[in-house]
Amino acid sequence: MAGHAKASGDANTSGHGGHHVVPVRVYLGVFAALLVLTALTTAAAFRDLGPFNNVVALGIAVLKATLVVLFFMHVKYSTRLTGLVIAAALCWMVILVALTLGDYWARGWLGVAGR
């Protein structure tokens, strides 16, 4: 995606009154990349990649989501505050999932029922 990022970089000046209009070719490029990634993840799902099945499926999903957030949702051209808001949301998702899974993960360790 480096090419697209670069292409949009020089478009920064074309904004109206301080905000940013992204060139169409960036949007089309992102769209194409999303299609490719969708094809890739679907194809990968039918191969047995051993322990990497989940990693590949979720890794591609994260990549796709990142593309949408950065370009379609203009975060690449937004203030740092927007990034902070997103980071906080992700951080809290991690707290929710990690601390809960910690309990499930360690549930049987003691070998005593209910502990």
Binding site: T41, T42, A45, F46, R47, D48, L49, N53, N54, A57, L58, I60, A61, K64, A65, V68, V69, F72, M73
Partner: peptide, 20 residues
């Protein structure tokens, strides 16, 4: 776009994992 992103995660989680 947010709703799209939710689907981007739902699709592999529900349809694709353990599919092989």
């Amino acid at each position: 776009h947010f709703v799209d992103i939710i689907w981007i995660f739902l699709f592999p989680l529900l349809y694709l994992l353990e599919r092989h």
